[in-house]
C-alpha cells in the first residue's frame, strides 16, 4: 500500500493537561507510527498523538489531519525482572 503525502509534523500531546509536549518532524518517526489506517482501511498521515498514563498503563491515541481517530494503543509497564 503506497504511503500518502504527510503534512510534515506530528504533535505529541499530554492527554491529562492537553498541552503539546513536542512537535516532531514526521520523517523522524517510523512509518508504522507516521501512518495508520482509517475506517476504510486507507493509510492516513498521523498528525497528533495523545498520551494518557495512569500507573502501569499508558494509552496512545493517534489522529489524522481531519481530526479523525485512527488507532488506540494500550501499553503496559513490563514486569520487573
Amino acid at each position: 500500500m503506497s504511503e500518502p503525502k504527510h503534512p510534515g509534523t506530528i504533535q505529541f500531546i499530554d492527554g491529562a493537561t492537553k498541552e503539546v509536549t513536542k512537535t516532531v518532524d514526521a520523517k523522524e518517526v517510523p512509518a508504522s507510527i507516521r501512518f495508520a489506517k482509517d475506517e476504510a482501511g486507507e493509510l492516513v498521515p498521523v498528525v497528533k498523538v495523545v498520551a494518557f498514563q495512569e500507573g502501569d498503563r499508558r494509552t496512545l491515541r493517534e489522529y489524522g489531519p481531519e481530526g479523525q481517530f485512527l488507532r488506540s494503543t494500550v501499553q503496559l509497564r513490563n514486569a520487573p525482572r
Partner: peptide, 18 residues
C-alpha cells in the same frame, strides 16, 4: 519518545476494525 523503556504495547485497536 516518553523516555521510559519499561512499557510494551499490549493491544492496538484501529479505526479500521483491526
Amino acid at each position: 519518545e516518553y523516555n521510559d523503556p519499561n512499557f510494551s504495547s499490549y493491544m492496538t485497536a484501529g479505526a479500521d476494525g483491526v
